[in-house]
Structure formats: structure tokens, C-alpha cells
Design a protein around this nucleic acid. Structure first.
Length: 928
RNA sequence: GGGGGAGUGCUGGAAUUGGCAGACAGGCAGGACUUAGGAUCCUGUGCCGUAAGGCGUGGGGGUUCAACUCCCCCCUUCCCCACCA
């Protein structure tokens, strides 16, 4: 009997030994290829939950694998330590954020060490350490000096719960990313980073191996769209402003503009509102401000708005259209103003219908269908006969009359002729779709045709209809009237591209987007332009627990950066957290009042702090030279280690951290501080681990406490179970019964290695088989490691273990051969179960660490099967399996297949049409 | 509404180029050992059928000698974005 596998004892023993031996200390070794394996550092929330483990353990396995392969592996760890929870804890429990954070780090560091990770703790970075944020501030000043940081007043996202502004990326579906509260808008003067300058570069992901999903998310976030900026004239108003500029992707619909809409926040609103509308407009603007983003952006909310009394001129047709404000127009996108084309935009259509604004169709429907409802008693006798004779598609209406559907020009022409003959005096009829024609018959039986091609025509048509039919008296527009007729509804509005109609000089143009833009550019009324969804990165935070923005305001000199020699601008220890909604620093007069570095006169410090995301935008650079004092990083060491070879972490950072870190890298590159443009060569997102159908997260609490499992079963078992649970990118569900399977396996390995092996015989076939299976396993495990397919990697090792267990029973190979395979198994298992394999390695008599061994190589010739199982199919159905030597010829294989008894019964009475042979795989006999 | 995934036994999952569906585990059933078992070991386990055999990768079509894999349509589900002009 061997002694029992005692994991907790072993974990401690080896972790201590590795630390004492500085086994995982790394330096810039030019003799080895480098490998920078980075895992997203955790926020200092207090405890590592199982989700952290799922992020850290597999990446550690991979880093260990690269290390065994002979790479010089940098696998660092640190802490994202600034942020709201620390401050909230301070407010709630009276603990200083620094104390709270450092206590959490203490605990988390202990947990990380208990995992048996290879982090070089000498390289640890903590973002709230003054020695770290000194450089965060240094970067801030660099960005300022390169015009990438600026101060601006704008409506900002405000979280009423956190009492802090948020960057756009931190607003998820109108809610705060941290506390889930609904976000509102506030006007504040804030610091912003000009990330939009890099919009195009951020959309490109050249030469980096990132998941397609993440690349798409980032591209969508940047949201580049090509369009046209068009100027609408205000000259006639006699105000200083001469134009309203709009951004549109549909310049081809310009002749259909029947109103304009400004965002309520648009500065033009105050200037253009006429005195009689002032009260109403101000009420609406105030209401918009009160609304949360959620309420405002809700697509369910009925569109509403207010006419501000002003009119703008569509320069292409000279029409004056009313200017409205509505909260569905966003100040932050495009120009904060839109031209409304109700005939070809869903929102504009609903808005126009609601407020009785005319609707003029200007794009032909692509299906070429026009409709006409021949109203009851408006047509002379015999009209239906003509419809029938003419082969028209029509149905009689219940209320009388006929619904006629017209296909194509010829039919429409024919119908118009019919109309002119059969329309009774003092009546009207219409064709809706394309063309849009109204036929009015006077007393003298003369027919007048009016097309719905302008606002003037629209007014005229409506007037005449009302005169003829009292029932439409209440309709404010022609389309409102037509909309009452169900039959017409699908003709009244569409968003498809098509030939331009009712468009003056540009009529019949089929590429209206291009044509109109070219025309506008020629006239100087507009130009092709690009609009982005992404906004500049707002980084001011009205909070204490962050790096102070290193800026000083001087009445004489304006905004002056703190001199480098004064960095870091330290957070004062004392802080009064009772002032809600403003930085506590604002009330620390001793700290605020300082000297202007330029003129020496009185100056005041900026009291907002820097968004924590800035701290995490460059931490991977600091790991390369954590003690460097002359700059944020040592350029020589950056040259050695960067860029990161593989970066792993949760997908939730797709458009926050990862976008910011890329922006930062590109900015540093353009400043000439680094020589690469992308920080992370390969990105991998692990899935989420769940337990009992509950998502593991900070907010929902973690059901599974990893510490308990580590104490009971050992770090190796927890690590191995995480590898085995499923594909890493997919995540999976934590089952206690599942972990016991892995625990049993490691116990079996323990016993397999330590229990005496007793050779019974030395059989050459058995030896060859052992060799083959060992080499096949090396190949499989290596391939799976490279693809980060840890679940099948573990399965392969389990298979090898099972095979070796059976072999042990028979004792069919020599002790030397046995030992060789056992050692291979241990090295292959070492990244996954570092403690147990180290113990076993030493017990086998080695005095070097297993983690300094070489990853085994496989020999393709030895891994090759000698015999293969040939599958025999008849008409694609499996009928037999026959064992044949690898070297079998095609003819022999086909003959053997035909000779099989099981196959013969299926060939009886049938004619063999052909025989397919796939070498090494199968024979398929096709019969009829 | 737009974009991106996913769907395989009782469960987690496997199947690298179209070529034996269900590796490896869990669970369950039976057995061995044991004072005892939440320990260990062995055997069985996709479904229907006594069997021969048939059926089977969300559903329906298609391509092919051969489809979890490729193409078309549909259903379900998860994630991201969403009044973006």
C-alpha cells in the first residue's frame, strides 16, 4: 500500500518550495523565444469567486504548457484597484478605501497563490499605488499635450445611484454598467479623450487573431456610416443662423422632406423658437432632460414633439418646411438635426400622421404595383365590364366599388384611359403607389389630373377632395385620408431604394444617393460625409477613489498640467464623503489650493478623478518593467515582451476595456513611445461558469466558493475539473458530482504511479502498443493545448491513464518501458495538476522540478497504427468492420469487403454498381 | 428591427478534411470487496424490438456513394446593439 494522496498538504508544500526557489521569476532572456500570456487582472472586490478561477486557472495551464515548451513566459498578475465599491464601502462602514482595497488584495493574492499559478509576484501592479498612478497621470498629461485630452461641456450620462458621470461605453441599454440604475442626462464640463480620432483605426483589426464576434462588436460600436450632410436655408428668418445642417443616409429622398426635426438639446432651438411657441418648447425640452435614457429611447414610446414656429427652406425645390423638436432625435449623433421624409422613414411617417404633416412620396415602389379603389357610385355603368374585359386584377368591395391592383405601366395607362371615360361628373378617383394621381371631374365632364408631387399639390388635392366628399372633412392630409382605406396602407410608406419620382431635375434617377450628393456638392449645399456612433471618451469622475486628474486651473494661465517632477499628484488621505454628486476632493481646501506651475500665482487643482478604465488601459505595459522609475515603462523591456501574445478574459469587456486599451496603444504609438499599434496579438474569451442555473457574478453572489473545494480536494482537482467541464470559450455548469469524477481520476494517477509495477513478461507487441498509444497521446494533448481545447486534452490523459491501468494488470512490458510512459503522462499532466505531478516526479527519484522539464515530442512513425479497422458499408450503411494491415492495397481491401459474410447477405440478388474506397477508412459498395 | 452564436443519449460533452455518431466523464442499474460507505474495483447503459433488424445529431427539403459536418427554408434559444436619421 502506498500512502494516500493528500492534496492540501501537497499544495502548501510545493507552493512554498516554488516561491523559495523563485521558480517562476522571469527576466528578459534573449536566448529563448518570449511568450507574454496575459490574463485580465481582477477588480479588488474582496473575494475571488469561481468565475475568476475559470478565467485564471486555464490561462495558467496554457502558460505552463508554453513554459514547458521552452518559451520564456511572462505571466503576470495585478489588481484593478480604483473604483466605486471601495468608496461605497468607506461610506457605508467607515473604512478608508485604501485600507479596504489593500485588505481585499491581501485576500485575493492568497487565493491566487492557492491556485498554484506561475505568476511572478515581483511584477505585481496595483493601480491605486501612487507609484503606479503617477504614470497614469503622466499619460494623461501626454494625451493633453498631444491634443487628445480636452475639456468640454456637454450633456453627459449621469448615474443617480453612483452619483457619477459615465462614459458612453459604460451605459448598457440605458443603464449603469456597475449598478444597473437608469441613467439620466446632465450638463457638465468634463475631461474627455479624443478616442474618435482613432475611429477608423479602431474598426480595423489587421494582423490580430481576435474572435470575429468581438471584432464585429467593436465595429458596431464605432458605428461608421456613410451619408450626406445637407444644408437647409434659414435666410428668410432674419436671424443670425443661416442654415440647419442635417446628416442623412438617404439624400435620394430629399424632395420628400416635409418637416425638420431638431434634438431638444440642439443649441439652434433657443435661437429659432418663435415667441408664441417659447413656453411650449421650453416645457418639452425640460421634460426631455428629466427622462432617463431608457424612457427616452424606448421604441415603444409614441413619437412626440413640438413645432417651434420656424421654417427652413429645402434648397432643391424651394419648399418651406416647419421645424420641430422631438426627443427621438439625438444631439450626439450626426448634426443633432434630421430632415424628415415621412413617405420613406417609419418614424417620420408615424410622426407626420400624428401631427397632420403632409407626406409626399418620392421613391417608386420596387414591386411596380399601384392600387386604385374605384369608390362606389363614382363610376359609370359598365366600368366593371371593362375591368373584366381588360384583364385587371380587382375585387368588388363590400361597401360597393372595386379594389383594383395594377401591375406595370401598360396596365396603368389602360386604367387611366378607362378612368377618363367612366368617372362620373363631380367626383374624383385616384391611383396610389406609382404613379400617385388624383382625377377630378368637373360638371362639364372634363377630367383634371393632379399628381401628389409637392406640398402645394398636396394642399390642392386635399381641398378638392373635401369639397367633393364631406366625409373627409376632418382629414388634415391626403395620406391621412388614404390611410383610412385598408387597401391602400401598404402603398403609403416604404423604405426601399428605387427610382426617384416627384424630384424635379433629378427625376427617374435610379442611383439617387450618389446623384443627389453630387448635385448638392456642385451647388455647395451639402457634401458626402461620414458619421460615427462612437463618442469621445469621458473620463472625469466625481469621486474620491481614483487617480486625481493632474491639472491646475490658474486665473492667469488657464489650464496648466502639473509638472512631471510633482507627480504623482497624491490623493489626500482625508476625505469627506458626505457631499453627494461632487468629488470629495472639492471640499479639501488644503489640497485644492495650490500654486500655478507656470506663473507661481494661486491655482486650483482639478477635483475630479480619472475613470478607472484609464488605469487598466496600460497595465500590461507596466508588467514589463514594474520598478522602472524614469518613465511609465522601460522601452527596452517593452521591445522584448510586447505585444501580448495571448490575452484572455471575459467578453463583457469587448467594447470597454479592449477598445480603450487599443486606443491607448495607438495614441502611444503615434507619440513615438512604442513601436506597435495593437497591444494584443491574440484574444480569447472564456465562457461563463454557472452553478445551479445561477450566473456567477458579483451582483448575484457566488454559489460555489472555490476555497472550500481547494481545501477539500486540492487545487489540482479544481483546476482539472475546470479544464474538463467543457470547451473553455463555452463555459459550463458546475456540478459537485462532476468534480468527483476528476478527483477520482487524479487519485487513480497517484496510485498508478506509486504502486509497484511488476513486469510479468516482455511482449514485443505490447511494448509497441504502449509506445504507439503514448505517442498518440502526446500528439493529441499537444494539439488540444495549442487550440485551447482543454476538455479533450484532459479526456486524452484519462484515456492514457485507463490504458496504463489495464496494462499494469497484465504486466506485459518491461519496467523501463513502463516508467518511460508514466513519466510522459506526468509531464503532460503537469500544467493541469502542477502540485501532484511535482510530488510524484520527486518520488520517482528526480530532484529537479517537473516544471523545468521539456514538453515531450511525438514521433509520427511511432504514433502510426499498424492495423486499422476498415468499415464496410453497403449503400452507405454500416454492415461490417474488418481488421486489416495499414499497408493493404485497394484491390485487397475491396475484395475483403466483398468476402465478408455480413456483407454478402446484403449483396444477394443485387447488382454492384460501384465500389468506393477511402484508404485507411472504409469501403462502400453501391448496389441496385 | 439589425448583427453574431448555439441546438447531439438521462446530464456535461466528443467527432481536426464530408467517411464507424455518442470519445471522456457524470448519473443510473447490476456485481465484487467491506463492520460500514458519499471509498475502491468490475460489468452494462442512444431509442424501439425477444431477435433478425429498424430508427436516430431541433423540424422540413436538397447536394453526395456517404451529411452532426455543405446548400435552401422553418422552429427554438442565448448574446450584443438598438428611435443612429
Amino acid at each position: 500500500m502506498v500512502d494516500k494522496y493528500n492534496p492540501s498538504e501537497m499544495d502548501k508544500k510545493w507552493q512554498q518550495k516554488w516561491a523559495d526557489d523563485k521558480l517562476y521569476m522571469v527576466t528578459e532572456d534573449q536566448a529563448k523565444p518570449k511568450w507574454y500570456a496575459l490574463t485580465m487582472f481582477p477588480y479588488t472586490s474582496g473575494d475571488l469567486h469561481i468565475g475568476h478561477w475559470y478565467a485564471m486557472a486555464p490561462s495558467d495551464v496554457y502558460a505552463r504548457y508554453k513554459r514547458l515548451q521552452g518559451y520564456n513566459v511572462l505571466h503576470p498578475m495585478g489588481f484593478d484597484a480604483f473604483g466605486l465599491p471601495a468608496e461605497n464601502a468607506a461610506i457605508k462602514r467607515g473604512i478608508h478605501p485604501y485600507k479596504w482595497t489593500m485588505a481585499n488584495i491581501e485576500n485575493m493574492r492568497r487565493q491566487l497563490k492557492s491556485m498554484g499559478t506561475i505568476y511572478d509576484w515581483d511584477r505585481e501592479v496595483i493601480t491605486c499605488d501612487p507609484e503606479y498612478y503617477k504614470w497614469t497621470q503622466w499619460f494623461f498629461i501626454k494625451l493633453f499635450q498631444h491634443d487628445l485630452a480636452y475639456r468640454g461641456k456637454a450633456p453627459v450620462n449621469w448615474c443617480p445611484q453612483c452619483q457619477v458621470v459615465l462614459a458612453n461605453e459604460q451605459v448598457i441599454a440605458g443603464k449603469c454598467w456597475r449598478c444597473d440604475s437608469e441613467v439620466i442626462k446632465r450638463d457638465l464640463e468634463q475631461w474627455l479623450f479624443r478616442i474618435t480620432k482613432y475611429a477608423d483605426e479602431l474598426m480595423e483589426h489587421n494582423d490580430i487573431a481576435w474572435p470575429e464576434r468581438i471584432k464585429i462588436m467593436q465595429r458596431n460600436w464605432v458605428g461608421k456610416s456613410y451619408g450626406t450632410e445637407i444644408s437647409f436655408a434659414l435666410e428668410h428668418l432674419g436671424v443670425a443662423e443661416k442654415e440647419i445642417r442635417v446628416f442623412t443616409t438617404r439624400p435620394d429622398t430629399i424632395f420628400g422632406v416635409t418637416f425638420m426635426v431638431l434634438a431638444p438639446e440642439n443649441p439652434l432651438v433657443a435661437k429659432l423658437t418663435t415667441p408664441d411657441k417659447k413656453a411650449e418648447v421650453e416645457t418639452y425640452v425640460a421634460r426631455t432632460r428629466r427622462f432617463t435614457e431608457i424612457e427616452r429611447l424606448s421604441t415603444e414610446k409614441e413619437k412626440d414633439g413640438v413645432f417651434i414656429g420656424a421654417y427652413a427652406t429645402n434648397r432643391l425645390n424651394g419648399e418651406k418646411v416647419p421645424v420641430w423638436i422631438a426627443d427621438y432625435v439625438l444631439q450626439s449623433y450626426g448634426t443633432g438635426a434630421v430632415m424628415a421624409v415621412p413617405a420613406h422613414d417609419e418614424r417620420d411617417f408615424a410622426f407626420a400622421l400624428k401631427y397632420g404633416i403632409p407626406i409626399i412620396p418620392v421613391i417608386e415602389p420596387t414591386d411596380g404595383i399601384a392600387k386604385s379603389f374605384a369608390f362606389p357610385d363614382t363610376m359609370r355603368e359598365g366600368f366593371e365590364e371593362e375591368l373584366k374585359k381588360g384583364g385587371f386584377e380587382y375585387t368588388p368591395a363590400k361597401i360597393g366599388g372595386w379594389y383594383v391592383t395594377l401591375h406595370g405601366e401598360a396596365q396603368i395607362e389602360k386604367y387611366i384611359r378607362l378612368m377618363k371615360v367612366y368617372l362620373r361628373p363631380d367626383n374624383w378617383n385616384d391611383i396610389i403607389g406609382s404613379p400617385w394621381l388624383f382625377f377630378f371631374s368637373g360638371k362639364d365632364n372634363k377630367i383634371e389630373t393632379i399628381a401628389l408631387d409637392s406640398i402645394v399639390a398636396e394642399r390642392e388635392i386635399l381641398k378638392r377632395c373635401k369639397k367633393i366628399e364631406p366625409n373627409v372633412r376632418n382629414c388634415r392630409t391626403v395620406v391621412e385620408m388614404l390611410n383610412n382605406c385598408e387597401f391602400y396602407r401598404d402603398r403609403l410608406f416604404h423604405t426601399e431604394y428605387g427610382a426617384m419620382i416627384h424630384s424635379g431635375q433629378l427625376n427617374r434617377n435610379t442611383d439617387g444617393v450618389k446623384a443627389v450628393t453630387a448635385y448638392l456638392e456642385q451647388k455647395g449645399w451639402g457634401k458626402g460625409t461620414i458619421s460615427y456612433r462612437m463618442r469621445d471618451w469621458l473620463i472625469s469622475r466625481q469621486r474620491y477613489w481614483g487617480a486625481p486628474i493632474p491639472m491646475i486651473y490658474c486665473n492667469k494661465c488657464g489650464i496648466v498640467p502639473a509638472p512631471e517632477k510633482d507627480l504623482p499628484v497624491r490623493l489626500p488621505e482625508e476625505a469627506d464623503f458626505s457631499h453627494k454628486g461632487e468629488s470629495p476632493l472639492k471640499y479639501n481646501e488644503k489640497w485644492v489650493n495650490t500654486k500655478c506651475p507656470k506663473c507661481g500665482g494661486p491655482g486650483k487643482r482639478e477635483t475630479d478623478t480619472i475613470d478607472g478604465f484609464m488605469c487598466s488601459s496600460w497595465y500590461f505595459l507596466r508588467y514589463c518593467s514594474p520598478d522602472y522609475a524614469r518613465a511609465a515603462f522601460d522601452p527596452e523591456k517593452i521591445k522584448y515582451w510586447m505585444p501580448v501574445d495571448i490575452y484572455t478574459g471575459g467578453a463583457e469587456h469587448a467594447v470597454m476595456h479592449l477598445l480603450y486599451a487599443r486606443f491607448f496603444t495607438k495614441a502611444l504609438h503615434d507619440m513615438g513611445l512604442i513601436n506597435f499599434g495593437e497591444p494584443f496579438t491574440k484574444l480569447f474569451n472564456q465562457g461563463t461558469i454557472i452553478a445551479e442555473h445561477e450566473k456567477m457574478s458579483k451582483s448575484k453572489g457566488n454559489v460555489v466558493n472555490p476555497d472550500e473545494y481547494v481545501n477539500e480536494l486540492g487545487a489540482d482537482t479544481v483546476r482539472a475539473y475546470m479544464m474538463f467541464i467543457g470547451p473553455w470559450e463555452q463555459g459550463g455548469e458546475w456540478f459537485d458530482t462532476g468534480i468527483s469524477g476528476v478527483s477520482r481520476w487524479l487519485n487513480r494517477v497517484w496510485n498508478l504511479v506509486l504502486e509497484d509495477y511488476q513486469p510479468q513478461s516482455a511482449d514485443e507487441n505490447a511494448r509497441r502498443e504502449l509506445e504507439r498509444i503514448t505517442h498518440q497521446t502526446i500528439k493529441k494533448v499537444t494539439g488540444d493545448m495549442d487550440r485551447l481545447r482543454f476538455n479533450t486534452m484532459v479526456a486524452a490523459l484519462m484515456e492514457l491513464t485507463n490504458y496504463l491501468s489495464r496494462l499494469k494488470e497484465s504486466g506485459a512490458v518491461s519496467a523501463t518501458n513502463w516508467r518511460s510512459s508514466i513519466e510522459t503522462l506526468l509531464v503532460l499532466l503537469a500544467p493541469t495538476a502542477p502540485h501532484m505531478t511535482e510530488e510524484l516526479w520527486h518520488r520517482l527519484g528526480h530532484n529537479q522540478s517537473i516544471h523545468n522539464q521539456h514538453w515531450p515530442k511525438w514521433d509520427e512513425a511511432l504514433a502510426k497504427e499498424e492495423e486499422i479497422t476498415l468499415v464496410v458499408q453497403v449503400n452507405g450503411k454500416l454492415r461490417d468492420r474488418i481488421s486489416v494491415p495499414v499497408s493493404i492495397t485497394e484491390d485487397d481491401a475491396k475484395q475483403l469487403a466483398r468476402d465478408s459474410e455480413k456483407v454478402k447477405t446484403h449483396l444477394e440478388g443485387k447488382q454492384v454498381v460501384k465500389v468506393i474506397y477511402v484508404p485507411g477508412k472504409l469501403v462502400n459498395i453501391v448496389v441496385r
